[in-house]
Design a protein around this nucleic acid. Structure first.
Lengths: 132, 132
DNA sequence: ACGTTAATGATAATCTATTATCAATAGTAG
DNA sequence: CTACTATTGATAATAGATTATCATTAACGT
């Protein structure tokens, strides 16, 4: 039977509370704050398990290892900060993507990744720029 | 001094004629039709070289190794066929992505990947569906 | 509290993609 | 044509991410 361990709870909690997709190492670091001595293999194992239980989903990015987020309630996309490398959620979704398709093509899904600087990093950049 | 070899020419030709981004193995296969005995290391070497010369660019996809395409003249996106795994170019680009951003965020770039079935694979699927 | 066994931690092994090595080959300047 | 050396092909090595192994630990039904 499935057991409720501190490790599993810490990993699940990290993902449910983060509010954004986390990398394996982000999950590892956060869960270690709860469970000293946590091993990275346990993180990988529980990520797979939580995915099977459909509590979390894998988020694939171009040119990067996947991140993990709480199973989303609605369709959404992501924003990647080029400075702090944090991924955040974007609620809205552009319209009319189907019209971009060539004749005869069938559209089933779409991935959109916006990239730039998050609010925090934008603020820091601006404060540097404003110095004389 | 830089030399013009059959291998380099075959690799360049494959990419310039393809009209769509190619994986390393696609380049390898196409160039082998021109140059028997071509080695995979030569493909990797020349992809890097052509990238440095800015004749080709790397195309990163979520959850896949990169592909390579002729250095594009205009901004564009891609369509990935879930059936034949071929990547093709999409000319247009949705408007108003900036409006999707939360307050304080700075948008610099965006990646869009449409997924579904290309015209060829859509046709095949439909012809199966139409059989009694 | 006990016994069973799922889960864990440490780390070796694996996997896939890419790069390094090096002897042999083949462009090309003269 | 010759000499020089960039380039190649075969493959060993590397890199990074993930999975397997296995002895030990700790849930939890009884």
């Amino acid at each position: 039977m499935k057991r409720g361990t501190h490790q599993r709870n810490a990993i699940r909690k990290a993902l449910l509370n983060a509010g954004r997709p986390l990398s394996v190492n982000e999950v590892f670091a956060l869960a270690q704050n709860e469970v000293a001595g946590l091993g990275i293999a346990t993180v990988y194992r529980n990520l797979k398990a939580l995915q099977l239980e459909e509590l979390i989903v894998q988020v694939d990015l171009p040119g990067q290892p996947p991140r993990w987020e709480k199973a989303p309630e609605r369709h959404h996309h992501h924003f990647l900060c080029r400075t702090c490398d944090k991924l955040s959620e974007i609620q809205d979704c552009p319209e009319g993507l189907r019209h971009l398709l060539p004749e005869g093509y069938t559209l089933e899904e779409h991935d959109i990744l916006l990239r730039g600087q998050c609010d925090t990093c934008t603020r820091v950049t601006n404060s540097y720029a404003n110095r004389k």
